[in-house]
Amino acid sequence: MNYIIKSISIAAFALIVSGCTSNPVMNIESRLIPDRLDGSAQTQDSIKTSIIAGCIARNWTCQQVAPGKILATINVRKHHAEADIIYSLSSYSITYKDSDMLDYSEKYYTIHRNYNRWVRNLNDAIIKELSI
């Protein structure tokens, strides 16, 4: 009898551990706008253009919803995520807005690890575009 209970406990633990794909939601906060490689000054328009190019490079769609604010959206298979990108002449932030099918928990502020990877890749693409 103990063998059966122990086996069930081990199987249940393995199932729980293997199902853990959630991580704390990653937001990019107040990332400094890098200098351009050619030494020219960034403008509000050049920053917006670079952010949009970074979104396109990583398969995010985007639309400017207000001056200094872009809504970025990504759809991967059945998964959907949205992030707000707020920018100024000195910095930008990428913050979680909404998602579907990514196991988001408002209580624990966790989400499927793929969302964080997509945001990290988006951030890298934006930095690259801002530096050009």
Rank of each mutant, 00 (worst) to 15 (best):
G54Q: 01
I33T: 02
G68F: 00
W60K: 03
R31N: 15
L32V: 14
D45C: 06
T73C: 13
D38R: 08
S46K: 03
A72D: 00
G39E: 10
I33Q: 02
A53L: 07
I74C: 04
R36P: 06
R58P: 08
N59L: 04
Q42F: 01
I33P: 02
Q44T: 11
S40E: 11
L71H: 04
C62S: 15
G39L: 03
T61W: 10
A57I: 00
L37I: 08
I52Q: 13
R77C: 04
R58F: 03
R36D: 05
I52C: 07
D45I: 14
D38P: 03
C55Q: 02
I70R: 02
H80S: 13
S50R: 00
Q63N: 12
C62W: 03
R36V: 05
R77T: 09
A41M: 10
N75G: 14
D38L: 03
P67E: 10
D45Q: 14
S40N: 10
G68A: 01
V76P: 02
V65R: 08
A66I: 05
T73M: 12
L37Y: 10
I74T: 07
P34R: 05
A53T: 06
T73R: 06
P67L: 01
C55D: 03
V65H: 09
H79C: 12
Q64D: 04
Q64R: 07
I56N: 08
C62E: 12
G39A: 04
K78R: 12
R58N: 14
R36S: 11
P34K: 02
A53Q: 11
H79P: 10
K48T: 08
Q64L: 04
T61R: 14
R77W: 07
S50W: 00
W60V: 07
I56D: 12
R36N: 14
Q64C: 06
G39W: 10
R77P: 03
A41V: 11
I33A: 03
A66Y: 03
G68Y: 00
D45Y: 09
I47H: 06
T49P: 06
D45H: 13
S50M: 00
P34H: 01
K48S: 10
A66T: 04
C55V: 01
Q44Y: 12
Q64V: 06
I52H: 08
C62F: 05
A66Q: 09
K69S: 12
S46M: 04
A41I: 06
S40I: 02
I51N: 09
L32K: 14
S40D: 07
A57Q: 09
W60G: 11
I74E: 02
C62D: 10
V65L: 08
K78W: 08
H80M: 11
I74G: 05
P67W: 01
C62R: 03
C62N: 13
Q64T: 11
Q42D: 04
H80Y: 15
D35F: 12
L37P: 04
I51T: 02
K78A: 14
L71N: 07
H80L: 15
D35C: 11
T61L: 15
C55N: 07
I74W: 00
S50E: 00
L71T: 05
W60S: 08
V65A: 10
S46D: 07
I52R: 07
Q63H: 09
